[in-house]
């Protein structure tokens, strides 16, 4: 694991989240390296999404601190692009693709200022990167699941952030979209960006990611994929579902 602090993009210390008295996340310490693709993996209810949300303060953590490049996250929000789960929003909302992507420029604009020509150009170039530039005036309710996910990715790309936090981007998308998203992620890594993805599919971790964080309320393991994604660690993460683990790990 890397120790040089300048190589750490996102540092999470003693993070605990509890609803009532039930812990959702318990004492998480995690230093996410810069310029790499990191997967957060764990069973349902392990707190994967909560980890992203509490790191961003969307959910207030019970305890813990989160630093971005050595500074408290509150002052570093512009460095981070968040891509929530696709089904967390109402796709029936009366708006079009371009409008949604433009939302990625709102942070730069601040209160009251409207997006102008520069912002629209930025939005179009982001749409181009995900192959959706011809859909700019499409009503969002008419998009397929994969297209919705690519619009969300474009909205994040517009922000020109250093860190990308993605919540289950591959759920319910077609193979074409999955490849397109992975290509964009690898491109981002080549530009020394940091990408953290909540991921479900154990079989693709080896192909897509450099680092993996195994989580089940408490942290199980963190490290390079080859060294960390062991059968023993997976058993610790997923409990006794051996057959499933051996199968998917092969």
């Amino acid at each position: 694991m890397t120790t040089d602090p300048t190589d750490i993009a996102l540092s999470i210390k003693d993070l605990t989240v509890a609803f009532d008295k039930k812990p959702i996340l318990w004492d998480i310490d995690l230093d996410i390296p810069k310029g790499a693709l990191t997967a957060i993996v764990g069973p349902n209810g392990a707190g994967k999404s909560t980890l992203l949300k509490s790191a961003l303060n969307i959910i207030s953590p019970t305890a813990g601190r989160v630093d971005v490049f050595g500074q408290p996250i509150k002052r570093q929000l512009s460095q981070i692009a968040y891509i929530p789960q696709r089904n967390s929003v109402d796709w029936d909302f009366p708006t079009n693709v371009l409008d949604v992507v433009l939302m990625g420029t709102y942070g730069d604009l601040g209160w009251f200022k409207r997006p102008g020509k520069t912002e629209t150009e930025r939005a179009f170039s982001a749409l181009k990167k995900v192959g959706m530039d011809t859909f700019s005036d499409r009503q969002i309710s008419q998009l397929s699941g994969g297209q919705q996910q690519r619009v969300f990715l474009a909205r994040a790309l517009v922000q020109n952030a250093s860190i990308y936090l993605m919540d289950e981007p591959f759920v319910g998308v077609d193979a074409v979209t999955e490849t397109a998203i992975v290509d964009v992620l690898k491109q981002l890594r080549n530009e020394q960006k940091t990408i953290v993805v909540v991921h479900h599919d154990l079989q693709t971790i080896n192909d897509y990611f450099d680092w993996v964080f195994l989580l089940n309320v408490r942290q199980i393991a963190f490290g390079k994929v080859q060294e960390t994604l062991t059968e023993e660690n997976l058993r610790l993460t997923y409990g006794g579902r051996h057959s499933f683990i051996t199968q998917s790990h092969q």
Partner: peptide, 17 residues
């Protein structure tokens, strides 16, 4: 734009500062 983003995706609105 603030109201639009707040209603469409409140969590994202928050991460925009």
């Amino acid at each position: 734009k603030e109201f639009k983003c707040l209603i469409f995706d409140g969590d994202f609105f928050l991460t925009q500062g």
